[in-house]
Design a protein around this nucleic acid. Structure first.
Length: 863
RNA sequence: GCCCCCGUGGCGGAAUUGGUAGACGCGCCUGACUCAAAAUCAGGUUUCCUCACGGAAGUGUUGGUUCGAGUCCGACCGGGGGCACCA
C-alpha cells in the first residue's frame, strides 16, 4: 500500500460544498427574536466587470467574522448587493455601444459567479442592485419626504464642475482641486442644484463620533476634521463711502475676535454680493472678479497664487474704536462658501493677512505678545505672531490671555449689539445633482407657473427611459425627445422633468437598511425587521470611504429619523477599514509596464521578461491597479490553488488593517499548508475512536499536553478573531497543526486526545478555509455540517499550566530560567533564583540589595 | 504649513500593554529519501566573539524615567496618510 494519502482535490471539494450550502440554504437569514442577531456587512461592490484582490481580501475578512459569529450562536445577517449606478456604465455605452443596463447586469452576473466561487457565507436571497426601480423608487420617496421636511432644497451657487465627466461634484468629491474619478482640475460654475442639508446635523455628526468606540480612531479624526467646527464671532461693521454716507453694514466671521484692535483692512470674497453690486458700474472691478475666477480651485494654482486685492470705494467703521476706519478690499483669498464671505484683516496675527498687508502697504499693529515678550522690542513686522500670548494695544483687553480676551470681547460685542459669538463649520451641504443618465432620477417637475413641483407619490418610481443615445456630450436624459415632457402635477400645464440624477453616493447611503427587507414593495424596509437587524454590527471596507460614504450614510440615517422612518442615530456600530492589496511593479526597458505573468525570476534572482528574457526593472510594491499592470486575477488564483488557499493567504501574515503584499511565494506557502493539513488529518483519521466516544478515565501526560495546546488555541483564536487579528489567529493554527503533527498517539487516551485536537482544529479553521474544514469534518465522521456546528469551548482548567518558566535576571539582565510550580510563593522563587548557578556567577559574590519578584514571570536580583 | 499614524532579523510580522525580543510564516543553509530533480520529512537560521560551554551587542538616532523600556517621556531622522488661502 502507498503510504502517501490522496492529494486534496480542492476543485471538486470546493464546488461540492458550495452546492451543499446552496441547496440547504445554510446562510439564509431569518428574523428570530430568541437569538441575538449579528449583522456583518462588507461595502458592496461597484459592478465594474470582474472582482479584484481588494474584494477578495475584504470579503474574506467579513466571511471570517460572519462564520465565526454564526458558530457562536448569533443569528447572522450577511448580505451582498451591487452599487450599480455610475459613470463607468455610461463610458462603456459610449465606447462599446452597449446599453448601461446590459453592461451592468452582465458584470453583475460575472462577479456574482466569482464571489460564489469564494465560498462566502452570504445570504444571496437578499441580493439587490441599486439600479433596479424596485430599489430606487424608495429612494425617490425618501427624497420627497426630506424635501417636505426642509432637508432638500435647490440653490444657485458656485459649484465644482468636472469637465471630463461633464457633471458637478460634491465638495467631498474634489481632491486637491481635482475630480475624484477623473483627476481633471475642476472648474467653477454657477448653477442651480439640489442639495441635502447635511449641515443641519453638523454638530450632531461631530459629537456622536465620540460614541463610535468601535470605529478606527483615524476615521473619526478625519470626519471631525472634515466637519471642522470653529468657535468664533460674527462682527458687524458699518460701511460708508468716501463722502461718509452710510452704505449699510458688513458682517464678517472671525475665530480671532481678540485681535480686533489689530484690524487694518476688510476683505470680501470676489463672489460676495456686495462686490457684484459694486462691479455693475465698475469695469475694473469686473475685470478683477473675472481674474479671481480664472485662478480656479486647483491646489497647485492656489499654492503659487499671489494675494490679490481690489480697493473698493468704501470704508469700514471699527465697531470698538470710535472714529477709526479701515479700507475695504475685494480679495482673491477669501472664500465665499465659508463664514460670511468676508473677513477683517489683522496682519499682525494671521499669515495670510500679513502677506496681503505687506503687499498693499497697510499698517501692521501687534495686539498679541508672547507671555515673556518685551513690549519694547516685540515686533510683527517680518512675520505674523499666531501663537498664544497676552493682549496689548487693545484697550480693555490689555493683559488678558488670548482665551479670556476672546470671551471678553464677544461679551462686549453682544452688549453693544455689534456682534455675537458663533460656531462655524467647514462642512457644506451635500450637492446631489448630477448631469448624468445612469443614476436615480430626481423626482421633480419644473413648471413655469408653479415652480419646482414634487412628482406625486402615486407616480413613483420615475424610471429611466431605455431608449437613450450617447452619441453627443451632455446628459442623455436632457437629449431624450419625449421623456422630460410631462404635465405639471399641480396645474396640469406642460412641465419638464428634472433631468439631473442623484449622486450615486445616495444609493449607498441606505442599502444596508434595504437588506433588512429587500423584497418589500410598500416601503424601503419593514420597521420591525429593520429594528431587529440594524444597526450593522460589523462593517468592513476601504478607508477611502472614511468621509464620503460613511459620512453620507450617517447623515441619511438622521434624515430618515427626522421624517420618522426610524429612531436610530447611527447606522454602523463597528467599523473596520482593511488595507490595500499591493504587488511589485515591473517595467520593461522602454518604460512600459508589465504584468506579473509577463515576467519571471531567474535562478540568479534577476527578473526578466518571459517573451525575450530582456531585463525588467522591479519597482516598489504598490496598490494593484490596471494602470501599473501589477494585478493578479483572483479567478486564476482560485482556479490554480482554490478559494481556501486564496482566503488563507489573505488572512496570514499581514495585519488586516495594513497593506498586504501579494507574492507568488506566499500563495504557494498557503497552498502547501492546505495540502499538509489534509495529509495530517487523513493519516490520523483511520486510527481515531468514533465520533462522541467517551473520554478515557486516564490520559498520559503527552495527551494532556496536546489537549492543553488545543484548548489554548480555542481561547487564542477566538480572542484574535474578535479583535480582528486574523494574522495571529492563523499563526496559532500553524502552531496547533505543528503540535498535532508531532503527536504520537500511544494508547486509547492518546487517540481520543488526537481526535479532540483535530476536531478543534477543523472547527477553528472553519471560518478561514471553510471548504477544507467542511471536508475534514465529514472525514472525521460527522454527518451534520460544520457550518452548522457550534464553536468549540475551551476548558478553563486546560488553559493554565501547572508549571511556569520563570526568567532569572541580575540587574535586569537575563541570566537563566527555571521551572516552578504555578503560583509558587515569592520566597520560594527568590531562594530558587539565588541558588541558581548562573545567577550566583553574575552576582559575583556581591550581596543582593533588592529582589523584585513578578509572580509566574520573573525574579530580578539587584546587587 | 497644520493634524494623524508607523519605523523590530534577508522578508511579512509576534511580543499577555513596563517583565525571557524575534512566536508563526516566507526565504535561505545542512541532512534524509531519490540515478537526479520536484514534492515531502528532520535539523538550523538576529549580529559579533568562541571548536564548544558560554559571553557581548541588539527593536530608526539620541537623551531621560525605571530594579527592568520594542513598549512610557523629550529632541531629532526617515516613511505613509488626511486636510490645506476654512479667517
Amino acid at each position: 500500500m502507498s503510504s502517501t494519502p490522496a492529494r486534496y482535490n480542492f476543485r471538486e471539494t470546493e464546488a461540492r460544498w458550495q452546492k451543499v450550502w446552496d441547496d440547504r440554504q445554510t446562510f439564509r437569514a431569518r428574523m428570530d427574536r430568541t437569538r441575538p442577531k449579528y449583522y456583518v456587512l462588507e461595502m458592496f461592490p461597484y459592478p465594474s466587470g470582474r472582482i479584484h484582490m481588494g474584494h477578495v481580501r475584504n470579503y474574506t475578512q467579513g466571511d471570517v467574522v460572519a462564520r465565526y459569529k454564526r458558530a457562536r450562536g448569533f443569528n447572522v445577517l450577511h448580505p451582498m448587493g451591487w452599487d450599480a449606478f455610475g459613470l463607468p456604465a455610461e463610458n462603456a455605452a459610449m465606447e462599446k455601444k452597449v446599453h448601461p443596463r446590459k453592461w451592468t447586469y452582465e458584470n453583475i452576473a460575472t462577479m456574482k459567479a466569482q464571489l460564489k466561487s469564494m465560498g462566502l457565507s452570504l445570504d444571496w436571497s437578499r441580493e439587490l442592485a441599486t439600479c433596479d426601480p424596485t430599489y430606487y423608487r424608495h429612494q425617490q420617496k425618501m427624497f420627497l419626504d426630506f424635501w417636505k421636511a426642509g432637508l432638500a432644497y435647490r440653490r444657485e451657487a458656485w459649484v465644482n464642475w468636472d469637465p471630463v465627466d461633464n457633471t458637478v461634484l460634491a465638495n467631498e468629491q474634489v481632491i486637491e482641486g481635482r475630480g475624484w474619478r477623473t483627476g481633471a482640475p475642476v472648474e467653477r460654475r454657477k448653477l442651480t442644484q439640489w442639495n441635502l442639508k447635511i449641515t443641519t446635523f453638523a454638530d450632531e455628526l461631530l459629537e456622536r463620533l465620540n460614541t463610535l468606540d468601535r470605529w478606527p480612531e483615524k476615521v473619526r479624526l478625519m470626519q471631525a476634521n472634515w466637519i471642522g467646527r470653529s468657535r468664533g464671532a460674527r462682527v458687524f461693521w458699518q460701511l460708508t463711502d468716501a463722502a461718509g454716507a452710510d452704505r449699510g453694514r458688513l458682517e464678517i466671521f472671525t475665530t480671532r475676535p481678540d485681535t480686533l484692535y489689530g484690524a487694518s483692512f476688510m476683505a470680501l470674497s470676489a463672489e460676495h454680493p456686495l462686490v457684484a453690486e459694486l462691479a455693475e458700474r465698475d469695469p475694473a472691478l469686473q475685470h478683477f472678479v473675472a481674474e479671481c475666477r480664472k485662478t480656479g480651485t486647483a491646489a497647485a494654482e492656489l499654492e503659487t497664487a499671489e494675494k490679490m486685492g481690489f480697493r473698493l470705494p468704501l470704508l469700514a467703521r471699527h465697531p470698538l474704536m470710535p472714529g477709526k476706519t479701515v479700507p475695504v478690499y475685494a480679495a482673491n483669498f477669501v472664500l465665499m462658501e465659508y463664514g460670511t464671505g468676508a473677513i477683517f484683516g489683522c496682519p499682525g496675527h494671521d499669515e495670510r493677512d500679513h502677506e496681503f498687508a505687506t503687499k498693499y502697504g497697510l499698517p501692521i499693529i501687534p495686539v498679541v505678545m508672547p507671555r515673556d515678550g518685551d513690549p519694547g522690542s516685540f515686533s510683527v513686522a517680518k512675520a505674523a505672531f499666531v501663537e498664544d500670548g497676552v493682549i496689548i494695544n487693545s484697550d480693555f483687553l490689555d493683559g488678558l490671555p488670548v482665551d479670556e480676551a476672546k470671551a471678553a470681547v464677544i461679551a462686549r460685542l453682544e452688549e453693544m449689539g455689534v456682534g455675537r459669538g458663533t460656531i462655524q463649520y467647514r462642512l457644506r451641504d451635500w450637492l446631489v445633482s448630477r448631469q448624468r443618465y445612469w443614476g436615480c432620477p430626481i423626482p421633480a417637475i419644473h413648471c413655469d407657473c408653479c415652480g419646482v413641483v414634487p412628482v406625486p407619490e402615486n407616480d413613483l418610481p420615475v424610471e429611466l427611459p431605455e431608449d437613450v443615445t450617447f452619441d453627443r456630450p451632455g446628459n442623455p436624459l436632457d437629449h431624450h425627445p419625449t421623456w422630460k415632457h410631462v404635465a405639471c402635477p399641480s396645474c396640469g400645464k406642460p412641465g419638464r422633468r428634472e433631468t439631473d440624477t442623484f449622486d450615486t453616493f445616495i444609493d449607498s447611503s441606505w442599502y444596508f437598511d434595504r437588506f433588512t427587507s429587500p423584497a418589500l414593495t410598500s416601503a424601503p424596509f419593514d420597521r420591525e425587521e429593520n429594528h431587529y437587524w440594524m444597526p450593522v454590527d460589523q462593517y468592513i471596507g476601504g478607508v477611502e470611504h472614511a468621509i464620503l460614504h460613511l459620512l453620507y450614510s450617517r447623515f441619511w440615517t438622521r434624515a430618515m429619523r427626522e421624517v420618522q422612518m426610524t429612531s436610530r442615530d447611527e447606522p454602523f456600530d463597528g467599523l473596520f477599514t482593511q488595507g490595500m492589496v499591493c504587488h511589485e511593479t515591473y517595467r520593461a526597458a522602454d518604460g512600459s509596464w508589465l504584468t506579473p505573468e509577463e515576467v519571471e525570476r531567474t535562478a540568479g534572482g534577476a527578473v526578466v521578461r518571459l517573451s525575450d528574457k530582456a531585463p525588467v526593472a522591479v519597482g516598489r510594491s504598490e496598490k494593484m491597479s490596471k494602470s501599473r499592470k501589477n494585478v493578479v486575477d483572483p479567478d486564476q488564483i482560485i482556479r490554480d490553488y482554490g478559494a481556501d488557499t486564496a482566503r488563507w493567504f489573505m488572512l496570514s501574515d499581514s495585519p488586516p488593517e495594513r497593506d498586504l503584499e501579494w507574492t507568488e511565494a506566499g500563495v504557494t506557502g498557503a497552498w502547501r499548508f492546505q495540502q499538509r493539513l489534509f495529509r495530517i488529518a487523513s493519516t490520523a483519521i483511520a486510527a481515531l475512536p468514533a465520533v462522541g466516544a467517551p473520554k478515557p478515565a486516564r490520559l498520559a501526560d503527552a495527551a494532556t499536553d496536546l489537549r492543553r495546546a488545543a484548548h489554548k488555541a480555542i481561547a487564542g483564536v477566538s480572542a484574535d478573531i474578535e479583535a480582528f487579528h486574523f494574522n495571529k489567529a492563523v499563526a496559532r493554527l500553524y502552531e496547533l497543526a505543528n503540535t498535532i503533527d508531532g503527536f504520537e498517539a500511544a494508547d486509547d487516551g492518546g487517540r481520543w486526545a488526537l481526535r479532540e485536537a483535530l476536531e478543534i482544529f477543523v472547527r477553528l479553521a472553519g471560518p478561514m478555509t471553510p471548504h477544507l474544514a467542511e471536508e475534514l469534518w465529514q472525514a472525521l465522521g460527522h454527518t451534520s455540517l460544520l457550518a452548522d456546528a457550534p464553536w468549540p469551548s475551551a476548558e478553563d482548567a486546560l488553559l493554565v499550566d501547572d508549571t511556569v518558566t520563570i526568567a532569572l535576571q541580575v540587574n535586569g539582565k537575563l541570566r537563566g530560567t527555571i521551572q516552578m510550580p504555578k503560583d509558587s510563593p515569592k520566597e520560594a522563587s527568590t531562594s530558587a533564583a539565588l541558588a541558581h548557578a548562573d545567577v550566583q556567577k553574575a552576582m559575583a559574590g556581591k550581596p543582593e540589595k533588592r529582589v523584585i519578584v513578578v509572580p509566574n514571570r520573573l525574579v530580578n536580583v539587584v546587587v
